[in-house]
Design a protein around this nucleic acid. Structure first.
Length: 596
RNA sequence: GGAGCUGUGGUGUAGUGGCCUAACAUGCCUGCCUGUCACGCAGGAGAUCGCGAGUUCGACUCUCGUCAGCUCCGCCA
């Protein structure tokens, strides 16, 4: 039933056919996007990765062939041979790139019949993602998905070209490595040859790229697959792709500048958009203070404003006590939202609660003055002071959170984003890039009661904070930086520690004993005894970057075969059970019941 | 580990205790149709309403559990 390509050769992609081919005999191949059977004549839109073209089946081709044409259905794979011609007057389709021409089919073959697909192969579909993922190969036929993958290809190619020009070389690092403490949960791979031992899949090629610097490669890059066994999000998959870069004998600004140039070239090449460099830089502290986030979206204002000074002497116990305990009281001004209903404010309160806020205080500013249940705790002067600090005007809604600093930042920071969404404050076409710099080197893990590296254990402290490492580790700034695009972290890196004594201090702060450090990272420490260049680098999240460039809401849309939120591949059904024999070879026994 | 939303022919939806013997659109099948392009017209097939309990005289509808998908919190150097 299915015919072969024997003796046929495609002349051109369907979507690339132009009127320059008029009068010429061509062979086209593709999928039947849609057929319109008029009885005496059949129109078929033939689709390939470049687009559509209309091919026409008319009875002149002969009875037998025409009968075959009548049996053609959607998604059949055809090879058609025919003459390109201008469409008759009045039948040109201006909505179609190839709408002024068509191919009069003289002969054709059905290379493959097809079942009716479970959903339409077209953009703007509204199909349950479960179905799309199960039939991902059909989902990927949709032009929009193909465009995303083409975009991804061009972006990665542009990166490679740029980096090659700059003297970076592409080096692969192993995928089977050893598990390390710190950081995300590792994916483990049992060893058959070493009973009871495991490889881990890399969370990033971090240590290897640093060893490549010790090896004198000077400038390295890799499009690296990374693995983290943590829960998924719209912008987090268990395996994802990073552009991993490392360079020797450089300062922080060398890394930033190189990255900026690359990103600028990307946008220039892809959209003809000129990004102004150098990009703005915001310290972590300032980002947290003003936006409640270390990846602030600067496409709109509505900054967090500290009103501790204005409320510290008020009768409002909630605020006062928080301040006395070292907490923050901050607010945001939702311009023009004074008309929000009780329920809308309740919803905002609930929303703030997700991030730990125990309440959401508010002022409604009307022409007659401030209206709110809590005004009674403040003197008129205090109310006025708060309104002034918040730059409140009649018609505004002021929202306040009082809590420990991290809760205030998280709740107001997210509330700010939520309100921007509701009020449509974001220009979707704006491209807002910035660096967040001067991250803390360490953060305190309350659960484990110890310091842990905010970036990773090889991040260098900034020189002038070195002395604080023993006296006040929480205040040490790291020579680390994140690249933020429209409120999404798309990359991060640091200048690394290249001095053994600083590295030891770092391990010390992390509560790693000399022995533990030697056991886990000994090879890096050893390497550092043999001449290590100062070095630093960055890793960019390719999936997230492409997601933003393609204006998609989830990285699943720019990954060919992504996993669901429960880390399953609905198409191939991974993960799956394995044979008992395989487990025996790996010296593994599972604890779950065999029926499961 | 937790919160929320969703689950009804292939697909997208409607149906808030009896009107449901489950509706609409689209897709699919059959027939007609020589200029359509979301072709048109006529007819037809197709659903134990995610799964399991419970409440009820009666459950697509209410309750509980469970599974799956999505969003989020925790987690993610």
């Amino acid at each position: 039933m299915n015919e072969t390509m024997e003796g046929l050769k495609r002349s051109i992609y369907c979507g690339l056919l132009t009127d320059e081919y008029e009068g010429r005999q061509v062979t086209l191949t593709g999928w039947v996007n849609r057929r319109r059977d008029h009885g005496g004549v059949i129109f078929v839109d033939l689709r390939d990765r470049e687009g559509l073209v209309q091919v026409v089946f008319a009875p002149e081709m002969g009875e037998e062939l025409f009968a075959k044409a009548e049996s053609v259905r959607n998604e059949y794979v055809l090879a058609v041979c025919g003459k390109v011609r201008k469409r008759p007057e009045g039948t040109v389709n201006p909505n179609m790139a190839t709408g002024d021409i068509e191919v009069m089919v003289g002969d054709f073959r059905v290379l493959s019949t097809a079942k009716t697909p479970p959903f339409y192969i077209e953009d703007e579909i509204d199909v349950d993602e479960m179905v799309r993922l199960k039939y991902r190969y059909l989902d990927l036929r949709r032009p929009q998905m193909q465009k995303s993958l083409f975009l991804r290809h061009r972006v990665v190619k542009c990166m490679r070209d740029f980096l090659a020009e700059q003297g970076f070389i592409d080096i692969e690092t192993p995928v089977l490595i050893n598990s390390t403490p710190e950081g995300a949960r590792d994916y483990l791979v049992p060893s058959r040859l070493h009973e009871g031992k495991f490889y881990a899949l890399p969370q990033s090629p971090q240590i290897f790229k640093q060893l490549l610097m010790v090896a004198g490669m000077d400038r390295y890059y890799q499009i690296a697959r990374c693995f983290r066994d943590e829960d998924l999000r719209a912008d987090r998959q268990p395996e994802f792709t990073q552009l991993d870069v490392e360079m020797s004998f450089v300062s922080r600004d060398d890394v930033l500048t190189t990255t900026e140039e690359m990103i600028a070239r990307l946008y220039s090449q892809e959209f003809g958009y000129e990004i102004k460099t150098p990009l703005p830089r915001l310290s972590y502290q300032e980002a947290m203070d003003r936006f409640g986030s270390d990846k602030p979206d600067l496409r709109f204002g509505m900054e967090l404003i500290n009103i501790a000074e204005e409320v510290k002497d008020s009768d409002f116990k909630v605020f006062r006590q928080v301040i006395e305990r070292g907490g923050n009281v901050k607010g945001i001004n939702a311009k023009g939202c004074a008309g929000y209903s009780r329920k809308e404010i309740d919803d905002l309160t609930k929303f703030a609660g997700i991030y730990g806020a125990k309440g959401l205080a508010y002022f409604v500013i009307t022409a007659e003055g401030v209206k709110a249940p809590i005004t009674k705790f403040f003197t008129p002067e205090q109310v006025e002071g708060i309104v002034k600090k918040m730059q409140g005007e009649p018609g505004d809604l002021l929202l306040f959170v009082a809590d420990e600093p991290s809760v205030v930042a998280a709740s107001l920071g997210h509330l700010r984003l939520e309100l921007a969404k509701q009020l449509n404050l974001v220009d979707k076409n704006e491209i807002n890039l910035l660096w967040v710099v001067d991250f803390p080197l360490l953060e305190y893990d309350a659960e484990e009661k110890r310091w842990s590296a905010m970036h990773h254990p090889f991040t260098s402290p900034v020189e002038e904070d070195l002395a604080l490492m023993e006296s006040d580790p929480g205040r040490v700034r790291a020579c680390a930086y994140d690249l933020v695009l429209n409120g999404v972290e798309i990359g991060g890196g640091s200048i690394r520690i290249h001095r053994r004594e600083v590295q030891e201090k770092m391990f010390n702060n992390l509560g790693l004993s000399q022995e533990e450090a030697q056991e886990k990272f000994g090879y890096l420490l050893d390497a550092f005894q043999y001449g290590v260049p100062p070095h630093g680098g960055i890793a960019l999240g390719i999936d997230r970057l492409i997601m933003l460039m393609a204006k998609r809401e989830t990285i699943r849309d720019v990954i060919a075969f992504p996993k669901t939120q429960s880390a399953m591949d609905l198409m191939c059904q991974a993960p799956s059970k394995v044979e008992a024999k395989q487990l025996r070879e790996l010296h593994i026994k599972t604890t779950s019941s065999p029926s499961k």
